[in-house]
Amino acid sequence: MLTALFSCERDNYQPPSVTLSGRLVYKGVPIPLEYNQVPYQLYQYGFGKVGPISQSFTQDGAFSSLLFAGDYKFTIINATVPFKWPQTVAGKPDSLTINLSSDKTMDIEVTPYYMVRDAKISAASNKVNSTFKIEKTLLDASGKNFSRAVLFINKTQFVSTNDNIASVSINASEITDLNNVNLSVNIPSIVPTQNYVFARVGVQIAGINSWVFSPIQKLTF
């Protein structure tokens, strides 16, 4: 009887209970990203196998992981993310050391290649209109061009290249004034009918194809 109780305790582990969460920010402003396309990795040391916990940022640029207390390293190894992740002297992706004993919220400051600023999106007479600025934020030699700017709308709150019901695109070469870009798209018929759409504009970075967006807006028409 004693043995049985003993093995019961031994076999059952506590579930992970410490939350690590935060946002990816540029000068304090969150960077909206493409859903499920920008991964980060967490390594916990002190165990037999070495392997990352891979997860993705949300489309608002937030992250959240439920973990065991311990020492972690946070890194981004993907070279196609729309921001510059610091490199070590050897040219490898750098990492953040995180000592996790209780719930922790942290903002991670990075420099994106671009930011979409002052996006004004409105719906009128079956059309979504947008006005926004494209700001090149990474000005040194590692900066990149962008290939196009796109206005996406969707019937659910997930809005991106994969998730949209309509979009309109303008190539970088056709944009004359980065401080005043206008895009508008017709709202297609939605089944079942709804009187709102979600919309945001994104800028696709050339060569790596990833996106930075404006915050998502719900438009009722």
Binding site: Q37, G48, K49, G51, P52, T80, T161, N162
Partner: peptide, 23 residues
């Protein structure tokens, strides 16, 4: 759906267990 081939798809991932066994 609409197929989205990411840059990470060009070369298939090596399983984490394989990498853990051979760093």
């Amino acid at each position: 759906g609409a197929n989205n081939f990411q840059f990470g798809n060009y070369y298939s991932a090596i399983d984490n267990n394989i990498i853990a066994a051979n760093p």
